[in-house]
Design a protein around this nucleic acid. Structure first.
Lengths: 221, 221
DNA sequence: AACACTTTTAACTGTTCAGTTAAATCGGGC
DNA sequence: GCCCGATTTAACTGAACAGTTAAAAGTGTT
């Protein structure tokens, strides 16, 4: 009854199978909608309607709603990791490398609002889906390793105070970069949009760099 | 058929009308559930079941689910404002006052996870309910005023660098305090619970104070 | 040409859930 | 004692929604 004798409308004749494309099409739309509406706020029927394929195929490939959500979460982390590979800190002093890392992280978060929203949603769910994913942990260990290396160099140079904790430092950089995106709606509603325009963001980025650097440097007056 | 001839079970005889108590009972349970499950994730039937009153009364007093959510959000902000009145910065230098403010804010956020979750949820919804509330804005203006006063004193003392923006400073203090609670689930799942135990939290609080202070102080090496 | 995997279609199931209805009773202020 | 607002109860409505079913036919591989 399908692929019918009447290939009217926009039904593609000479049609090719492409499971990967179908899956990634579903993931793309699902990411958009889960990030916009949360897990319970998203409708499978709406995902299906905006996909090139059908509701049936969502269940065929992803099992159920939670399975799809879990895959969306993993894909979001994977995509962000991919973007972080662009960062090159070779040949810089430890302080310059750290400044560049903070600045990059700040901007990278800004450019990934969908990812930020997925993490927010996952935090609302007490990270229960992230906890089950072995894929994701490795991504983030790399961030800590990179920081640990910078700290090691900074101590060797005598530029950084001793005893810095790379995980705490990552927490601080993340806090400043993440909050900037996650809490923009409420912050902007309460205090106006000034900090979120181009000048405001440049100022906040520079201040974040300054805060982190003055914290790790050795100078105690 | 009710208030029946048989006051068996725990039906309160000698029962008193008390609209305010009924409303605040509903708000208390609704806060707990909205904070736990979000707007679309919360069931009115579950709120009703855990209240001393009935589903009918929820609609009687709050109209609909969104009306109830909006009132819960306002109540959460009001309660947090109430807690902030405990902070006393009289007779301190600007630097000491700011240190105390950061430290207090960090701890105050930690003690208000329900409020934090409501703000997270509200950010997911692009602050659409907060925007409509005139009640809430005034709460937060006070925070800015308090900071502006500290900055003014710090500049007068010659202790702070000139040109500090109280809104940006509030953003920074909030980022460090808010992220600590909001992102604990994912951060802890990825990097372990170490930073969220008592020692870890003491360290993070101290480092937050240090970061803010070394950023506002005048010493440029 | 056989076989496994992929895709289409649309109706259907069963449940969950926000919001309603109705009639009755109760408390308290006037 | 009268009236109005507060409260109880439990069943009901109607829509939304996750997940299923079934039969058919396509693709790609060997």
């Amino acid at each position: 009854m399908n692929k019918p004798l009447v290939p009217n409308e926009k039904k593609k004749q000479n049609w090719k199978q492409n499971p990967e494309a179908v899956k990634s099409d579903i993931l793309r739309i699902a990411t958009e909608l889960f990030a916009a509406n949360g897990l319970s706020g998203t409708r499978i029927d709406e995902i299906a309607a905006r996909t090139e394929t059908s509701k049936r195929m969502i269940y065929y490939y992803f099992g159920d709603k939670e399975g799809l959500y879990a895959r969306v979460l993993e894909a979001a982390y994977a995509k962000v990791r991919e973007g972080e590979k662009k960062l090159n800190l070779e040949g810089l002093t430890a302080a310059d490398a750290l400044a560049e890392l903070v600045s990059f992280t700040f901007d990278h978060h800004r450019k990934s609002p969908e990812f930020i929203r997925m993490v927010m949603i996952e935090n609302i769910h007490h990270a229960q889906y992230l906890k089950r994913s072995e894929v994701i942990r490795t991504v983030n260990v790399a961030a800590i390793d990179r920081l640990a290396e910078i700290i090691r160099r900074g101590e060797a140079e005598g530029a950084f105070r001793p005893g810095l904790d790379p995980v705490a430092l990552h927490w601080q950089i993340s806090a400043l970069s993440f909050f900037n995106v996650s809490n923009r709606p409420t912050f902007s509603a309460l205090f106006g949009p000034g900090l979120f325009g181009p000048e405001g963001q440049n100022a906040l980025r520079g201040q974040a760099v300054d805060m982190i650097l003055s914290h790790v440097k050795v100078n105690d007056p």
